[in-house]
Structures are given as C-alpha cells and as structure tokens.
C-alpha cells in the first residue's frame, strides 16, 4: 500500500517536472512570437493615460530614457524622456508621441517584451490605469488621498442631489482652504467638529460613486457652481439659527449656499 503511494508520488513529480521543462521555453517563445505593441493610433501627450502610455513608458525604460514607474500616466517624467529620445534621434522636439516618434521608438526598442521580462505591469488584462493622479488646486498640490476624502464627504453630504449641487459642495470645501476662518488643509476642514453632518453621523465612510468623484475632479479644476460659497445648509433640517444669518447666494437642489 505504502509503496504504491510512493510510486504515485514519484510519478507525479516526474510528470510535473517534465511538463515544466516542456512548457517554460514554450511560454517564452510563444510570448515573443505573439507579443504585439500595445500602441494605438492616437497621439500621446502629457496628461494622456492608458495602456498605450504603459507601452511607451516600458519601451523608454527598456532603452534607458525613462526612470520612473510604469503607471500608465503620461506625466512630467515621461515627457522629459520623450523629449530626450526625440533629441537623440534628431526628431522634432515637442514631447508628443505621434506616428513618427512611435515608429522610431518601436524600432529603437526592438526586443522589448514585457512578458518575457516578467513585468506583469504590462499585461493587457491589468490595463486600467492605477489610482487617480494627484491634482493641483490654486497652485497647491492636493494628494490623491485628500481627493478621496473630499469625494467621500461629497457623497455622504449630497448623494441624490443634482450633479451641479455635488460639484458645488466640493467647491465649498475647496473655497474654505483659503478662508481665514477655516483650517488650511483638507482633513482639517472635513473633520472640523460640527462642520459636516456626514462626518458627524458616519455617512462619510460610505464608498463614493463615480458621480461624486467626477464632481470633485471638476471642482478641483476650477468649476464652482456655488459662486464662491463657504457654507451651505439644508433649510428643511438646519437647526442652527446662526446659519440663516449668513448672506445667501443661491439655492441648488435641496441646499442653500451662503457666505
């Protein structure tokens, strides 16, 4: 009985080993044969995101022009790498990756194969771009996590409101940044005791939907439907008399925005 098991085990081991030996080079070869560039026909510029940007970064890294992370977001690092590449290859230096630069780069980085190099990052299945890049608001950089906090607050405070109303609430949070009456950082504003009902009752920890995130993105880039408001309240539920005394600006959905 025991012998039988041992025999079986040995057989399985040998079979696996053989399979590995047989498959491994096969895998690599098939990878090399079937790997096609993930470039698309679109022109890539600073600000572009996507699989083709990964491809661009991977190839630039392969030939030593790019030193940053392969994250699929065409930022300043990628921009300088492209310009350097264009300079070295005697092309027009504009930092854009159009058909000419693309062709030159594919030719210059022959042998580039993200699969053979075991770089899962370049896999087409994980093509989606990683986290939202940081953005800047009024000359100050706001971290990706602070942007998530704002989206959470916007979702907790105003889901179900019209889209402009949600952008307006994100704008109110950002308007507070420069106002002397409020803390000068995003977490300080959001977690100020009594400032937001969604923080007080824990609704801020609901996962925000795509609409709330989009609203924050719009507000970060300067869209302000609240016209410079720093307070808002829901007249149906507001208990504070003081908030009614603030100079009102306008009403969007259920909220009155004021200064």
């Amino acid at each position: 009985m025991r012998k039988k098991w041992r025999l079986l085990a040995a057989a399985v081991t040998v079979a696996t080993a053989m399979a590995c030996v047989a498959i491994e080079p096969n895998l690599e070869r098939s990878g090399a044969n079937t790997y096609q560039s993930a470039f698309t026909t679109r022109t890539l510029v600073k600000g572009s995101t996507g699989t083709d940007v990964r491809e661009l970064q991977g190839r630039l890294k392969y030939i030593g022009y790019y030193k940053g992370k392969i994250d699929g977001a065409f930022g300043w690092g990628t921009y300088w790498a492209v310009r350097n590449f264009q300079y070295k290859f005697g092309m027009k230096i504009d930092g854009k990756v159009g058909p000419a630069t693309r062709t030159k780069l594919v030719a210059a980085s022959r042998g580039y194969n993200p699969y053979a190099q075991g770089r899962a990052a370049a896999s087409k299945h994980t093509a989606s771009v990683s986290s939202t890049p940081t953005a800047s608001y009024g000359g100050r950089n706001v971290s990706a996590n602070d942007m998530k906090l704002i989206s959470n607050a916007v979702y907790g405070e105003s889901r179900g409101e019209p889209y402009v109303g949600q952008v307006a609430i994100a704008a109110v949070i950002l308007n507070r940044l420069e106002n002397p009456n409020f803390p000068h950082n995003i977490p300080g504003i959001i977690f100020q005791p009594g400032a937001f009902t969604a923080v007080a009752d824990g609704q801020i920890w609901l996962s925000p939907n795509a609409t709330a995130k989009k609203a924050v993105n719009d507000a970060m880039r300067g869209w302000d439907p609240s016209s410079g408001a720093i307070y808002y309240f829901n007249p149906a539920t507001a208990t504070s008399k003081w908030i009614w005394s603030r100079p009102q600006i306008k009403r969007i959905g259920r909220h009155i925005f004021c200064r």
Binding site: S227, G228, A229, R246, P247, Q248, I249, K250, F257, C258, R259
Partner: peptide, 9 residues
Amino acid sequence: AQKNGSGTP
C-alpha cells in the same frame, strides 16, 4: 438668469 445673493465675491 437669476441674480446671485450678496455673499458672492
């Protein structure tokens, strides 16, 4: 067109 209240910048 609606005039905004007095609180605007």
